[in-house]
């Protein structure tokens, strides 16, 4: 464990807590894409298959349970909670996220580190996570006005993967044989997808104006 990875995990944790806080306290999911939340639940479900078979550390197991629990409960809130679901804007959240799942699965079957079920599922979760934010970014472009919590959520979600890139660089230089091109490239693609959001997020923060994304 290194400081970059720990900071990345804490930033990731903060992003799901911000989202849970928003949904649980103000009982609203306005501006949140259910599709992105469903994709994230699928990412965690396919990545943490080793939850009960490989024990790495208490920290690792605890965080996996938190990410699984929070992502599924966010999906449940938006889908079934009688108050929250009313604020879900399904007419705007129309990204066909199934078109993301299949290519990621095919790619994982083609490009992976080892052709086993667990490894292909893990690789699938990496590719899927890289594109999971797309429905959310499209929704933000459409709804234009971004409330603070949603903006913070997306920012933290992007920042965690950027910190992971620093972690991979650190591990590459400190651990022999630590080479995982698949992880690195999909993590880089994921961070680049946030790049324009980061740009407008910092612009709004610097000029102290409300965050607006260009149409």
């Amino acid at each position: 464990m290194n400081i970059f990875r720990f900071a990345g995990d804490m930033t990731h944790l903060a992003s799901v807590l911000v989202l849970l806080l928003k949904i649980h306290t103000i009982k609203s999911c306005a501006g949140i894409s259910l599709k992105t939340q469903e994709l994230y639940a699928l990412v965690f479900a396919t990545r943490y298959l080793d939850l009960f078979t490989d024990y790495i550390s208490l920290y690792n197991t605890l965080m996996k349970l938190i990410f699984l629990g929070s992502s599924f409960s966010i999906v449940w809130y938006i889908r079934y909670h009688k108050i929250v679901r009313r604020s879900y804007d399904k007419d705007q959240d129309t990204f066909r996220h199934y078109f993301l799942v299949l290519p990621c699965l095919l790619l994982a079957l083609l490009i992976n580190e080892k052709f086993t079920f667990r490894e292909v599922m893990w690789t699938f979760s990496l590719y899927l996570e890289a594109v999971a934010i797309l429905p959310q970014l499209v929704l933000l472009q459409r709804t234009r006005n971004i409330d603070n919590l949603t903006g913070q959520y997306v920012f933290l979600l992007g920042a965690y993967r950027a910190l992971y890139i620093l972690n991979w660089i650190y591990r590459y230089f400190t651990e022999p044989h630590y080479v995982h091109w698949i992880t690195w490239i999909s993590g880089l693609v994921q961070t680049l997808l946030y790049a324009d959001f980061f740009y407008y997020y910092f612009q709004s923060w610097k000029n102290n104006v409300k965050l607006e994304l260009p149409a």
């Binding site: 990875r5 690792n60 996996k64 990410f67 080892k114 992971y164 972690n167």
Partner: peptide
């Protein structure tokens, strides 16, 4: 060995 590499990252 690299075969049974266990992914230790979240």
């Amino acid at each position: 060995t690299v075969d049974d590499y266990i992914h230790d990252e979240l």
